[in-house]
Design a protein around this nucleic acid. Structure first.
Lengths: 340, 340
DNA sequence: GATCAATTTGCACCCGCGTGCAATCTTGCG
DNA sequence: CGCAAGATTGCACGCGGGTGCAAATTGATC
């Protein structure tokens, strides 16, 4: 069956074939492909040469089965409406690929599907599952963890209260203090905070920090509204509803949003719904620094999540064998543009 | 080793365990989990019951290895800057998951990385690789196909000229004719076509169809510019560069863009760069119908890619065992908004 | 109750490679 | 040149389950 090395034989080339060709055993072939394996330089070379000629590449599926390490990370994403998800996906896949991991993308329609998604992931023996979700509650993590079949569960870009879980997240509190400092240095008098769905703990930190900072320095607590979903149109509608019948003098002069998607909706509402101007009439601040925030149509002041650092932190966790839990906060960067 | 059925034992529950408990053989267990398998109702029930009690789920990794079908589809994405990618990812993952496939997301930084990406995918034995790329040339597909290790290669949302490849794509020609019809019914006199990087064949069909339709009915060929990347800012800059020193009377009164990302950049340029108005001074048309197109800030007239139908077509291809090649065109939907 | 076709079930063998240890080969040194 | 430590290499066994066929069972018919 020794084919010429021209046409790539469709019948799979296995380590055995390479072994035969190189005149060594199958296990030596495996060693040649393994970093830090105990193998002589001479046989490594001859194995690699044989592999090259035969077009051999190790089969990761078989390797996963045998080693109980799949080199796969499941990314559970629940809100594909937020452009920031795309940025995160880009960043994470790139880092993971660089480090040799594969990425299983799982679409979570609703938080109730999380357990099912984790099950599916575990059936593929992923080494870790990363929850890049927005609209889910901590309770669901507990449940999912109950049926713990996944080796590691990491909550990304969001804080989980669950003590068994590891969260890797932007330091929302520090970020919001920085934002508040910037805003408090100017004479805003009627701030409004626009948050996501009430009750999701994801939103808590940013809101709480901002409200507290403001109260501390101005003695009053800003008003708050909650948009029922992280959706620009909902934010738009909500703001219009709220301000349409209000005299302009009572409009807020500053709207701080929990994220950019909401902020975009708010800016659209102010400009196209109410016919007022940003930032002259009303200043707006977002969070995440999605690409759109930098566009000339918005020039939205925002806070950039430190995705690179968060990705590195994730990789560190994946590499470590320790059962890690707790929270890792990474500092982001405040990006001031025209909107505030 | 017969544990109580309370705590899920960490040592993996295998089909053998279930078999023992149900008093059948391992193969009968496998049959119970397989649709259309030859198994009596009675044993299926008892197997499923035993499985439930033990918390058994079949191991997809082992199954993949044995059956040579991984149930995995690799999605190769090359341009994470385009929000439309997020829409596609959402749509595809949802369809694929519904049909039982897993999704391997691979980030292609540059077209030169495609062969490597395909290799990685093949090492995980994906059943198919789907190229959701924009900025790559057909040549690369040929090369990648040369080292054919992936069972199926599908080019998604873009036409490949390669005869060995299957493309699933919106019917760009029909779409552009529809767009042109709409525009030709009105008295535009100075159309401009804004395309992506020149040379990528992806852009050919839309551009060619539009130019031809216009020429046919008006006797003149619209002007064309090519943005060096599918990037709103580049489109912005390019348009500014081109029109800044031109008297307004010579500005185009209609800009047709190859996709929405470019159209957004163009609109921003017209409004914020040139201080002119859309659609009063200049009308703009895009393609893809990204979410932003519907926002009140843009109200961009666009053409919605039929993602659901395209996803269904993809699933059909995946299911079929036939070596399919050629092109499948699906009809999308013209969405008229205020911008044109 | 015997007989034969239709169901069900069991099994040998394979998928391609990792783990841990024992066997073998190299070295350096006395 | 002989020997032991260290470096290499080979191997039995297992990972969890799919395939194709043969054995066993069931049921229907006369």
């Amino acid at each position: 069956m020794d084919d010429l090395d021209g046409a790539p034989a469709l019948p799979n080339v296995t380590a055995d074939d390479v072994a035969a060709r190189a005149g060594v055993s199958r296990w030596t072939v495996a060693r040649a492909f393994k970093k830090d394996a105990s193998i002589s330089e001479r046989s490594r070379r001859s194995v690699l040469a044989a592999a090259e000629e035969l077009g051999y590449v190790p089969d990761l599926l078989a390797a996963s089965l045998a080693s109980d390490r799949s080199g796969l990370v499941a990314l559970l994403v629940d809100d594909f409406d937020n452009p920031h998800k795309l940025v995160m996906l880009e960043s994470l896949t790139r880092v993971l690929q660089r480090e040799g991991w594969g990425t299983l993308l799982i679409n979570i329609g609703h938080e109730s599907e999380i357990p099912q998604a984790l099950l599916t992931a575990s059936q593929r023996r992923v080494d870790a599952a990363v929850l890049i979700g927005t609209e889910f509650d901590d309770a669901i993590i507990g449940t999912a963890l109950g049926a713990r079949r996944v080796k590691k569960l990491i909550v990304f870009a969001r804080v989980s209260q669950d003590p068994q879980t590891l969260s890797i997240c932007c330091d929302d509190a520090a970020a919001m203090r920085e934002i508040a400092d910037h805003l408090l240095a100017r004479p805003f008098r009627r701030p409004l905070f626009v948050g996501g769905p009430d009750g999701f703990s994801a939103t808590l930190m940013r809101k709480a920090t901002f409200l507290e900072a403001w109260r501390e320095r101005r003695g009053v607590t800003p008003e708050v509204v909650h948009v029922p979903r992280y959706d620009a149109r909902r934010a738009f509608d909500l703001l219009i509803d709220r301000l349409r019948d209000q005299p302009e003098a009572e409009h807020p002069d500053l709207v701080v949003c929990e994220n950019d998607v909401l902020a975009i909706g708010v800016m659209d509402a102010i400009r196209h719904g109410l016919g007022r101007s940003v930032p002259d009439d009303i200043a707006v601040v977002g969070f995440d620094d999605i690409p759109l925030a930098a566009s000339p149509a918005y020039e939205l002041t925002s806070y950039r999540q430190p995705l690179a650092a968060m990705g590195d932190a994730l990789v560190a966790v994946l590499k470590s064998s320790a059962e890690s839990a707790g929270r890792q906060f990474v500092r982001g960067e405040f990006v001031v543009r025209r909107s505030a």
